[in-house]
Each structure stands twice: as C-alpha cells, then as structure tokens.
Design a protein around this nucleic acid. Sequence first.
RNA 1: GUGGCUGUAGCUCAACAGGUUAGAGCUCUGGACUGUGGCUCCAGCGGUUGGGGGUUCGAGUCCCCUCAGCCACCCCA
Length: 425
Amino acid sequence: MLQTPRGTADLLPADQAYWSYVTAHFQSICEAFGYGEIRTPVFEDTRLFQRTVGEGTDIVEKEMYTFSDRGGDSLTLRPEGTAPVVRAYLEHGMHRLPQPVKLSYIASIFRYDRPQAGRLRQHHQFGVEALGEEAATIDAEIISLLLTLYRSVGLTGISLQLNNIGDAACRPQYIEDLTAYYRSHVHALCDNCQARLERNPLRLLDCKEDSCQPFIQEAPHTLDNLCADCDAHFSTLKRSLDAMEIEYTLNHTLVRGLDYYTRTVFEVWPEAVGRQSALGGGGRYDGLARHIGKRDVPGIGFGTGIERIILNLQRQGVAPDERQPFSVYIATLGERAGTYGIGLTNDLRQRGIRALLTYKQRSLKAQLRQAGNQAADCAVIVGDDELAQGQVLLRDLKSSTQENVAATDLVQALERLRAGEQDPQ
RNA sequence: GUGGCUGUAGCUCAACAGGUUAGAGCUCUGGACUGUGGCUCCAGCGGUUGGGGGUUCGAGUCCCCUCAGCCACCCCA
C-alpha cells in the first residue's frame, strides 16, 4: 500500500472546518491591518535561500528540498516565506509604490526534518511582511497583528518572547566580544557549542545543554551592547507595545535561526510546558534585500504555522462552529421520476441551493436515511404518481412534517424554508 | 541527524503463558417496515494483524530488518 511521503499529510473534508476557520480570521485581520495578499511560486532559485537564510544555518545546511530540473537549474522548495516575498518586491519594482508595502501570504513550506506532531516536512504558514519602513512602530504593528490572530481564533495562555540582536553597526563588535568571552571557556563547552563558536556564534546563546547555561548567563548580552540607533529603535518598540497593552518577555537567548535578522526578533510560545515548538516567530531584516538586489529595503515580518495553531486549538478544546448550508435531498421512485429528479436537482443548484440526490434506484427508506446522513434540511419526494399530477412531496426533515406542493411552486417553497432556517425566530 | 515508545477492519479497541477459521462496538449497505430518515432488532460488506525475513509442529503474540506515527533531543513554524 502506497502512502503519503513521510512528514506530509492529506487534508480531508473533515479537517476543513478548522482550516477555513483560522484562514478566515487571518484574512479578515490582514484586511483590518491593511495587508494585501501575495502568492509566490512553491520553488525558487536555490541561491535565493543560500544568500538570505545563510549558508551556516540548519535550513540551508540540512533541511532544504533542493533539486535540479530537466534544464539543469538548481531549484529549492520554499523553506521559509520571507525571502520570496522580498524577491517579488524587488522584481516588481514595488519600491516605487507608496511605502511601506504591506503583504500577507498563505504558503506551503518545505523542510526536511524528523516529523512529529506539529512538525511536518510540508507544512503551511500564514505570514506577513512590511517592506520599506524602518520605524519601530511598524514592528509593533506586526506583532500586534500576530497576537490579534491568536486571540481571535481563541488561543489562550500564549507568551511573546522579545529581543533585539543589533544591526550592522553594533553587531560585529558584539560578536567579537561574545566570541572572545567564549574562547576563554572553550574547554568547558559542549561539542555543539565548540562548533557554534566557529560557525555561528550568536547561536551559542541558544544552547540547551545544562553545562553551558552558566556561560549563557555570564556572556555579554545583545541588549547591553546595542548602538544608539538600535537602542532608540528598541525603546520605541517597547513604548508602542505598552501603548497597545501587549505584554512581552525580554529573552536575551532568543537569536533565531536565520542569518538575515537585524534588531527586532520575537517568537510566540504556546501555553504548554517545556521548550515547546513556537507557534510563530519573526523579526526585522533590514539587510536582506541587499543579498537579492542592489537596493537596501528595511523590512519586518512573521510566519506562523497553521498546523500548530490548529493543534493548539484542539488541545485547548476550541472547536470552530460548523454551519452547514441549507440543503435539499431529492428522493425519487421509479425511472421517470429519477430522470425528473436529475433535472430538478440541477435547476436548484443553478439557483444556488445545495441539492443532493440519489444516483441509482433504491428504496425510499434508503434515500431518506442518506438525506439524514448528509444533514439535509428537507427532502423532495417524487414518484410517478406525483409526477402525473404535477406535484411533489416536500418533507421538512427537522420537524418531520410534509406537504404536497405544485412542482411549479417548489422553488418558492424551498426559498421560504431556507429563509426560516437562516434566521430562526 | 541521535535516543526511546507504538503499529490488529475506515474509526475506537479485544484476542489465556505462542494453539483451530483474528473478534466486538461505531460507521456504511440491506432487511424487519414492496413509497417515508433518526430508535430497536437481524444480517451483510470490511483484515496479507504496517511490510519483509527468521525461530517453531504452529506466530497478531518471540527475534532481526524495514516503513510509518508519536515522545524527548536538534531545530523551528
């Protein structure tokens, strides 16, 4: 038996309620915040991610789905959402639009990783990017948008982790200080950290080994080593968050796994204990556009995992309300009635009424049972007798009452039933 | 990529310490009720016990390999 590739999942009609629920909330919130939807290809030139995400990162080093196509080009399935959007911004000259350009997306993301609940090789993210604005107030807007999404779908107990990792002016000096500090303790570090020291010093602060914790505490922190501009930027962000009554936890070990981040970085963690998988995260990336084009474009955004949102909703017992549309089941008896039924069904559908029917001759009992299974609101019963008299039986399945209706009046009678269904007294 | 746990009908689960033909509930289909759903009763459909190999007279059960899911790491969404 063949099955879905490891770490991928089918999305069945039964799962759809949650997906449309969270998607609808995301879309209406983006509308309220003024973000317009963008779609980019599922695969891109491999260099896009190598240059932006960074050669030393886990994503580029071991998680990308990279392949060459029949023409020999190296392509990569999108492992994150930001770089493609920035690429599109530059490619379409959006720097000539009124700034900032505020974009949102819903995208499949691919990362080769060991699967687990809430961690798939193909997963889906909502994301938002604001390009062309360096002021920290827009950082606060982005964070607010993300938290508004969580709150509106009903997630509780989440926490915002916040940090600032400096910019091109102050980070080089900071990295030097950090590296110097760690070099003096190099023999006490775990193997992983010894490697990080060479390849990606910022990640030293992210180590989970108990033996490395004291060094993380003692090491210089980015927040204490910001240049004046970064410091002012961070102050504005904090003031803005306060003004929106958004609570946050300063987390100096939050450094993020992608190279392109500058200044503001944040993650949102769910309620459950332990080092849980983040619901969403993001940050500022003022140096990113340079790696793609010839232009500097400040930007900030986030990505949040749709599967993880849904997983946490289910754990919290939040269920989306499933409102089924008004529907009619056409039950027919006899061949002539069956032919009439397919015509009638099609006619109702053209009028926007959800109509279901039986596809083969079967007992009326079986047909009504199916009508019940499919949660039809009412059934139209038509046999050869009714047909001869130009009448049909209209049965209300909720109240179990039925009446004879002239075939020509059926649509009107259904519309009346539907209206009553949609706003009950 | 590392370590561990778990895989039996579509779903939830049974099957003494290896022992006839792997069972039940739910779902679905049909009947009781030749043209009236839900309730009840009856019946039917549905399995290479994840897959492959081995041990044994005999394997769902024990061993090995493999695949998948899950948990903890790693990392992130």
